[in-house]
Nucleic acid binder design. Structure first.
Length: 421
RNA sequence: GUGGGUGUAGCUCAGUUGGAUAGAGCACCAGAUUGUGGCUCUGGGGGCCGUGGGUUCGAGCCCCAUCAUCCACCCCA
């Protein structure tokens, strides 16, 4: 019997980890330049955190969570997203009582029991940011700018930023009402899914891809017209701030968030041409979240980027190249009597910060050269009878084919000197 | 959860109306006068043909199931 990785999970092998590390490095630099600090929360949490923090009615909670009982019969869930854990930690450690806003970022695996597809896995990785303690629309703009800056730095400039405001609970309630009034007369002509959506969350009907549903609800009210004065003002400032920062966006009336603690700004970034799972990142404001989890009123905003989707986009657009690390120096033994000698040199040059390796499979001298070449070695130190007898090392420059005879003292300096050129 | 496509060597794939020891390229290992890489040439190892049933004298080819994967729906990162 052969055991394979579970459905929807993947091994990220060394050929790919170089790409991951490169992306992670670029993202981290940007996050820190925007004054975000890393937080690390558990990979599993009490199930109720997500029930309250993501929402009972969401697909995530109702059918996509990896929930299990531990040996003490506690119901735990592998985190399907990162925001709820951050909010929980903010409350648990009374962070809200300190200097505000707090700007946190996190990175790591998330888990959703979903049907795997290109760009969608059961274990996937997100980088996310959360800023708690400010309701400033300029913070909304900054957050969006951060996301856009990251994409640009990765070379993903062909994105579409969708932006909307879902208002506050008050104005959304009135919008909901006007939407119900609009759809109600035609609800029987909607597709079965939409009939259900209409009952549970009428806003979701706007998302439906079925053409007939679109036609049935044509002329539907848009949320923008229902926003209260403050929400309208908030959204206007966000838009202006983005425009002033030369960030292009598409105002998208159909971008909605179903739950009450999602408020005001909502955004998603899509990269066309990478398949159905084109959203590489998304986020929004959630002024009601901390309260919903039992904390004080504490506004917040954040976003998350999907690592696998960023990789998919980079690969699809041919931007994903990244060099796997090799070695600087390879030690080739022409006689295996000199193993201990080789080890000493390895120790020495590695301590000097030089990447080095040797053969451990008993290859012939010729094969060792071939192996050195494949590892990308710029230099090869040859050790044979002649070298040992006469007390020197042969240093071969693989590019120029020049060979130098060096003594033990000269070795490290010479290597560094050649490497510097 | 629904619909459709695909599973043959580490990778990319051939495999003729079901017919004998299942092939190629790349990769890997070795050799081409024995202490020297990239190119070339020669040779070699490596496949329960995803898995389990079934039909048949005979299955990589046909049927069923299952698993995995891909595409779309759905959802979102």
């Amino acid at each position: 019997m052969q055991v394979k990785a579970p459905r929807g999970t993947a091994d990220i092998l060394p050929g790919n980890t170089a790409k991951w590390q490169k992306i992670e490095r670029i993202i981290k630099e940007h996050l820190e330049s925007f004054a975000y600090q890393e937080v690390r929360t558990p990979v599993f949490e009490h199930t109720e955190l997500f029930q309250h923090g993501v929402g009972q009615g969401t697909d995530i909670v109702s059918k996509e969570m990896y929930t299990f009982n531990d040996r003490s019969k506690r119901s735990l869930t592998l985190r399907p997203e990162g925001t709820a854990s951050c909010a929980r930690a903010i409350i648990e450690h009374s962070i809200y009582g300190g200097v505000l806003p707090v700007k946190w970022y996190y990175t790591g695996p998330m888990f959703r029991y979903d049907r795997p597809q290109a760009g969608r896995y059961r274990q996937f990785h997100q980088v996310g940011v959360e800023a708690f303690g400010s309701n400033s629309p300029y913070l909304d703009a900054e957050t969006i700018i951060l996301m856009v800056e990251i994409l640009s730095a990765l070379g993903l400039t062909a994105y579409e930023l969708h932006l909307n405001s879902v208002g506050c609970p008050v104005c959304r309630q009135s919008y909901r009402q006007s939407l119900i009034e609009h759809i109600s007369p035609v609800k029987d002509s909607l597709c079965p899914d939409c009939q259900l959506r209409f009952q549970q969350n009428p806003l979701r009907v706007l998302d439906c891809k079925v053409a007939a549903c679109h036609e049935a609800i044509v002329g539907y009210p848009v949320i923008h017209d229902s926003l209260c004065v403050e929400c309208r003002e908030h959204y206007a400032i966000v838009r202006t701030a983005l425009t002033d920062s030369n960030v292009d966006y598409i105002h998208d009336d159909q971008l909605v968030r179903g739950l009450d603690y999602y408020t005001n700004t909502a955004f998603e970034i899509h990269i066309p041409g990478i398949g159905a799972q084109s959203a590489v990142g998304g986020g929004g404001r959630y002024n009601g979240l901390v309260q919903a989890l039992g904390g004080p009123y504490l506004p917040g905003i954040g976003f998350a980027l999907g690592m696998e989707r960023l990789l998919l986009a980079l690969d699809t657009l041919g931007l994903g190249e990244s060099e796997a690390p090799g070695v600087d120096v390879f030690i080739a033994l022409m006689n295996d009597r000199f193993e201990t000698q080789a080890l000493k040199i390895l120790n020495k040059i590695r301590k000097a910060g030089i990447r080095a390796d040797k053969d451990y499979t008993g290859r012939s001298g010729k094969a060792q050269m071939k192996y050195a070449d494949r590892l990308g070695a710029k230099l090869v130190i040859l050790i044979g009878d002649e070298e040992i007898e006469q007390g020197f090392y042969t240093l071969r420059n693989m590019q120029t084919k020049e060979q130098l005879q060096l003594d033990n003292e000269q070795l490290v300096d010479s290597i560094k000197q050649i490497m510097a050129n």
